[in-house]
Every structure is written in C-alpha cells, then in structure tokens.
C-alpha cells in the first residue's frame, strides 16, 4: 500500500504524457474550436440578395434561412478583401460544377460592388449570394473569420463546418463523402 503511494507520481506522469502525445502526434491546431452548430438547425437570417445572383429562393431579392430548406446546401462565407477566399475560389467552382449541392455565398462585411467585381473576375460558383454587411449573420453562425464553409442538409440541419480556405483535399476527404451520404438520407 505504502509502496503504491510512492509509485503514484510516476503513474500520473505516464497518464499525462500519454494525453500530450496524442494531440501532438495528431498535429492538432490548438486554435481550432468545435462548432456548436453541428446537428442544430441553421440559424435564422434574412439577407438582401446580391444583384445578379438570383437563387433558389422564391423571393429573388432575399436570401433567408427558410429558403435553404428542401435541398442540400453548402454555405460559404467570403469577402473580396480576403486573400484565402481568393485561394479557395477554384475549389468552390469545382464543387458547384459537380452539382452535388446548391452552393450559397454570404458576402461577409464586404461592399456589394466589390463582391460583384470579385465574382465577375473569378467566376461565380454561387446560386445566390446574401449580403451581410454588418457581419450580424456571421455572428449567428459563430463565424471566427472568412472563409468559412458550412454544409446544411435538406432539413436545414448544419452537418459540417470548415474554418479557413477549402483545399481540394478537404473537399475530396470530407465534403464529397458527406454530400453523398446526405443524398442517400434523402
């Protein structure tokens, strides 16, 4: 019993070390935070639609949470001033071209003119673009910055969140399999 007491520090150290090795070897990014939205309904929002991007909504001038229902959507927050958005743009174009989800854009804290120019220059992957000038909808989504991407199923439940620019790898490994799964659920 007494001996066991003396062994305790060593055992504790072993447990602690094990706990440290796992995240370190996984190469976790400590600044990554889990989203609270996963598994929850998409937050309520209603945004003016960017001119020239008529979307799935019945009202072509409003992009709202209600208008996302009934289809699998991929919601991407972007801004013309954001460099990583520029980098992920071709990837988004390819996701849109695959037609596996309706790709929706939300221009975060961006001048609508600048957003329109950005899309005209790089191509427009979005079925519809909402204008979130004040960033209020961003807060509703728990946004930490742009770009961020959400996958929402047909029932309007958030299923996936990606922080930072989408890479081909993210699409191939996470998004496409998820979209296929959601398709089956339907």
């Amino acid at each position: 019993m007494r001996r066991l007491l003396y062994l305790l520090p060593a055992l504790l150290l072993a447990v602690l070390l094990f706990r440290f090795v796992t995240p370190l070897l996984r190469g976790d990014d400590p600044s990554r935070i889990a989203s609270v939205l996963i598994g929850k309904p998409v937050p309520n929002f209603a945004l003016a639609s960017l001119d020239g991007t008529p979307g799935p909504s019945s009202d072509k001038h409003i992009l709202s949470s209600a208008s996302l229902r009934g289809q699998i959507t991929l919601v991407n927050f972007f801004a013309s001033w954001c460099t990583p958005c520029r980098a992920e743009h071709p990837t988004l174009m390819r996701v849109a071209a695959s037609k596996k989800a309706v790709v929706i854009g939300i221009a975060y804290k961006d001048d609508p003119m600048a957003s329109a120019k950005f899309l005209a220059e790089l191509g427009n992957p979005f079925a519809q673009v909402g204008v979130d000038r004040a960033g209020a909808t961003g807060i509703e989504f728990g946004l930490t910055g742009v770009p961020e991407t959400f996958v929402i199923d047909a029932k309007g439940i958030v299923r996936f969140r990606h922080v930072g620019p989408l890479l081909e790898r993210d699409v191939a490994d996470k998004i496409l399999p998820l979209l296929a799964k959601l398709k089956n659920e339907q």
Binding site: R3, L7, P9, A10, L13, A14, L17, F20
Partner: peptide, 17 residues
C-alpha cells in the same frame, strides 16, 4: 522536448518509487 521530459522525469519518478 516531450521525449526528454519523459526520460528525465519518468526516470526520476521511477527511481523515486
């Protein structure tokens, strides 16, 4: 550093036990 820590402190605590 973790390996060094494990060796140094682990060794010490084992010796201690």
């Amino acid at each position: 550093v973790l390996v060094l820590l494990a060796l140094t402190v682990g060794g010490a605590l084992t010796l201690y036990a």
